[in-house]
Amino acid sequence: MSARHQFSAAAFRWQETDGNPDVVAGNCKAVTNAVRDIYAQDMTNVIFGDLYRRAYSLVLHKRGEELYSAVEAAMASEVQALVGSLAVAGPSGQSFLRELLATWRRHTAAVSAIRDIVMYMDRTFVPATGRTPVRELGLGLWRDGVVRSGRIRLRLVEAVRLEKARQEEDGVVGVPGSGDLVAGVTEMLTELGADVCHEFMEAPTVSS
């Protein structure tokens, strides 16, 4: 008797959300909104437990595809916005590097927060379908959208070259904090991949 009851009650608990496109769309929307808020560093509406549950239920009901592309698109557009803000940011040289590194840190923090929210997708849907994991997705977006994009690439190379020249002039200890900038850039590039670091750190010496 009780087993029978359990069957009818439980069987369609999951189908409510599965069959209902509004719920699916709502959940997707909540996650993409969260991506936006995280990049804007506005955490008031980002409730981890709730968002995780939404992402989880999407993947569980075989809507991983939609969630993945929604997250990917949202991250891409946020990174584009960051590029825009960088393009207008200050003159070249130190202030540019400082701005770039600050934005990079914001980006990595955001990616890790997003990864936590869609962790269930990252652990199940992503390996099963051979997609790029969220962390690598974030690195890739930054690499191709920011560091390698035409305007920023040139300014970065130029700024690093100037910075190095200044260091040599002043002696490394001359300007406090300026050594950190180059080190920070190197660290960022290494994280993007050994070849990226190579590509940038070799370029100035070859040209000069």
Binding site: S2, A3, Q6, A10, R53, Y56, L60, M119, Y120, R123
Partner: peptide, 16 residues
């Protein structure tokens, strides 16, 4: 209790 099984499957998935 077998009645808990379904919920535990859900818990096991959700909490990885």
């Amino acid at each position: 209790d077998p009645i808990l099984a379904e919920e535990l499957f859900d818990v096991a998935s959700r909490y990885l």
